[in-house]
């Protein structure tokens, strides 16, 4: 089901949580609402669900205006950040709840409910836990039960609030991939809220970046990463080095091989992997030296100190593959030369 938000605004007292947000989400997408805490992403999700009312604007699901529709009639599935499993019910009863509260005419028979609940529990690979109570489950298991419960009513839109926020790092990694596969299988339009840009990049097919109640950019992960539309998005997605032309950075950028003639702004954002590092012999005077480095697995992150000039103490981050780093045979304190391959310009 497609989702259309037009001109959504929401204030909490003096605080403007959402400021005239317009967003269209086509059917079948897996969308991440990404932004720092307090940017309004959860509020937007709750407005789509009908758990919160917008002060202004309309919500359309599949072309139908549902702005004044109660949450129970919107046909959405909502997964809460802390799962909100019914603590006094077993896993089975939790998942069956949405089917059992249907009006009598639409309610499936108890046999059909049984069959469906077991099918859903098999889908989330937890059927063996059906007699347990929520407080006997691990975080990852609760998350999957919450998802099964939301799916039981066959929602046309699935909404997840910080779905991996409360989980261990390793469980989170597994669940991310699992959610992606599940979405592929079910093809339900899905929106999830996250503050973790890595998570958004890994799971979503579309990312909506929010800040201060406004949409900063919307696009596929690669679009957002490779062509950030503004300063905020560039800083928020992935790591970036920021150089200010107006300060002494201009001269320095030139020395790092950048042509400033096609500068389109006053700050240059350079991703760590867009900086090439070459070892210099001690005799050459270079202002940059290797301060420290960290092993990130396949890549190595170099912390490069820059002295001389005014930017003394400023640290530049560069990344390179593990193999390449070994070949360079760099040690802490070695002088290096930099070559900037690509930069984004912003005002």
């Amino acid at each position: 089901m497609s989702i259309l938000l037009s001109n959504i605004s929401k204030n909490f007292g003096q605080f403007s949580a959402l400021d005239h947000v317009n967003l269209e989400i086509p059917e079948g997408e897996l969308v991440a609402l990404l932004g720092p805490s307090g940017c309004g992403k959860t509020t937007l999700l709750r407005i789509i669900a009908g758990l919160e009312r917008a002060d202004e604007g309309r919500v359309l699901l599949n072309g139908e205006d549902v702005t004044d529709e109660h949450v129970r009639n919107r046909g959405i599935g909502f997964v809460f950040q802390h799962y909100a499993l019914f603590r006094h019910m077993t896993v089975f009863d939790n998942v069956a709840f949405g089917l059992r509260v249907k009006p009598r005419k639409l309610r499936p028979s108890e046999d059909q409910i049984k069959e469906k609940v077991h099918a859903l529990l098999n889908l989330v690979q937890l059927d063996w836990l059906n007699h347990r109570f929520p407080d006997q489950l691990s975080g990852g298991q609760r998350q999957r039960i919450a998802l099964a419960r939301a799916l039981a009513v066959e929602p046309s839109v699935l909404l997840l609030d910080e779905p991996f926020g409360a989980l261990d790092a390793s469980v989170r990694k597994d669940l991310r991939l699992w959610l992606r596969h599940l979405h592929h299988e079910l093809n339900v339009t899905t929106i999830f809220v996250t503050h973790d840009q890595e998570e958004a990049m890994e799971v979503a097919s579309q990312i909506v970046v929010l800040n201060h109640g406004k949409i900063e950019q919307k696009g596929s992960p690669s679009e957002i990463y490779d062509h950030p539309s503004n300063d905020f998005v560039s800083r928020f997605i992935g790591q970036t080095n920021v150089f200010h032309l107006e300060k002494d950075d201009g001269v320095w950028l030139k020395s790092a091989g950048m042509s400033l003639d096609d500068a389109r702004g006053i700050t240059a954002h350079v991703r760590p992997h867009n900086i090439a590092v070459v070892k210099q012999s001690d005799s050459v005077s270079s202002p940059v030296f290797l301060k420290d480095w960290q092993h990130l697995g396949a890549t190595i992150r170099l912390e490069l100190g820059r002295d001389g000039l005014n930017g003394s103490g400023k640290i530049i981050y560069a990344e390179m593959p593990n193999e390449q780093f070994k070949q360079l045979e760099l040690a802490k304190g070695d002088k290096v030369a930099l070559f900037i391959k690509h930069a984004h310009w912003f005002n």
């Binding site: 009908g50 109660h70 129970r72 909502f78 809460f80 909100a84 499993l85 603590r87 949405g98 419960r149």
Partner: peptide, 19 residues
Amino acid sequence: EEEEAALSLGASGWKTFFQ
């Protein structure tokens, strides 16, 4: 949250309260 979850699953206000 549990009440919101019940409502989002289609339960009426009374059912949410009693169940």
